[in-house]
Design a protein around this nucleic acid. Structure first.
Length: 114
RNA sequence: UGAGUCGACCGGGUGGCCGCGGUCGACCGGGUUCGCCCGGACGAUCGAGGAAAGUCGGGACUCCACAGGACAGGGUGCUGGCGAGAGCCAGGUCGGGGUGACCUGACGGAUCAGUGCAACAGAGAGAGACCGCCGAUGGGCCGGGCAACCGGUCACAGGUGAGGGUGAAACGGUGUGGUAAGAGCGCACCAGCGUCCGGGGCGACCCGGGCGGCUCGGCAAACCCCAUCCGGAGCAAGGCCGAGCAGGAGGCGCGGGUGGUCCGCCCUUUCCCCGCCACCGGCGGGGACCCCUCCGGGUAGGCCGCACAGAUGGAUGGCCACCGGCCGCCGAGAGGCGACCACAGAAUCCCGCUUACAGGCCGACUCACCGU
RNA sequence: GCCCUCUUAGCUCAGUCGGCAGAGCACAGCCAUGGUAAGGCUGGUGUCGUGGGUUCGAUUCCCACAGAGGGCU
């Protein structure tokens, strides 16, 4: 279950207070917030990735994969893709996203505990 | 049977599991200025294209400007019909490609508005004479003759545009007569122009015939002229509501302000200006600050614009099975296995144009070969 | 989404009444120096983004396409 990020102010807050992580062909910035109970997600897919069809398909696959993960349950997340993400199959994309999500979850847990 | 041309259409289908966005209905929870708003679950229903693309023409719509007209700038340019002057369909003339079906390009004006361009070559690129031909007529010289005159020669005046050669293009072509040499100068045929008559067609135009002068070049996707059309910007247009800060007006007052030590805390009464009392100080007035109310403009933001798809970091997806195509491999065959699914994704809407596109299907037609 | 601009040598750019494709830097060779740099001399350098069309002839004029860049919230 995921929601959407809405409004200029939410994106400014994400850009200031978010932590940026990279894994493979994907990257993301995550701002933890326990009041945002459904995870709010936005996507940044540049035009260099491909045509509108390719970018739409990549965004829909990422949205479907984020809906089935459970490591991140709250906060705001901006997911970006590099042009090499197009060449991944759906299974490879799933592994890539899982690596990214576990990386973000562990570093956030470390940051809040210390 | 094979190859091909034109026109029209479709452009994967069915099912399962997990999901997404809008609208409507009714339910639950929270908030409420009682108009309603937010969130959740349920049911019903709708949810990408022929090009949604490029943004190349129009139009709707919105704002700005505007008495009327003109200039500048730009679009269009054969004829008829439809339509909204865009465009489409059919036809005409000229040119190019194909054996063919057919495809494709151009289309007002260069005599009777004017300007300009044509490198190089060539004598010359619109009117001129380099080489050349002639020198009839006029002239000079020589010879003959009594003379009129005749013959020769010069190439001075002059005539000529046939030939040479250049070029993409050289002021009709061929033949013949003619001449001093020549030339549409005359004639025959052909090409072109103008004009008249007859016939066909709504028309562009076509067919046939006669006459004329003999020829008056090319480029307007060069400037331009003529006819006709166009005000500018664009939904990020624009409209409504509207925090906070700043501005203006009014009111209230122990909230705030100032100082003592940076804060907590505590104390004092005024932080600034003016007037009165001889001064400390007191009294009065004003200002600053703070709080409240109101005002107009209007930012963030929200709503409308906005739709029988209608979002606003942007929904129509992910996975699987079968069928359908297509390719490769194995197999004598039936069949089996594996990989793949054209171009491409709405953001105000509509019409047109252009561009991209695997495969399938229908109709008409052409060519080649075979059979009857 | 809407509206504009540009594309010429390896790089940055000129190039109008259509006929020559050019500058600066860079590159190569030579001179000079013991050697290098600077300097001097001599050069090469191009499908003028792609494809059609007009024209005798197109970087230039017309049309279509492609690729870069910019502005408007």
């Amino acid at each position: 279950m995921i929601g959407r990020i809405h409004g200029r102010r939410a994106f400014d807050r994400l850009a200031r207070g978010g932590r940026r992580s990279h894994a493979g062909a994907l990257w993301c910035t995550y701002a933890p917030d326990e009041h945002l109970v459904p995870l709010r997600v936005a996507f940044a897919i540049p035009r260099a990735v491909g045509s509108a069809v390719t970018r739409n398909r990549l965004r829909r696959r990422l949205r479907a994969l984020l809906a089935e993960q459970t490591a991140l349950a709250s906060g705001a997340l901006l997911v970006g893709a590099k042009p090499t993400a197009v060449e991944l199959t759906f299974v490879q994309l799933r592994d890539n996203l899982r690596r990214l999500v576990t990386l973000v979850a562990s570093s956030t847990a470390l940051g809040t505990s210390s």
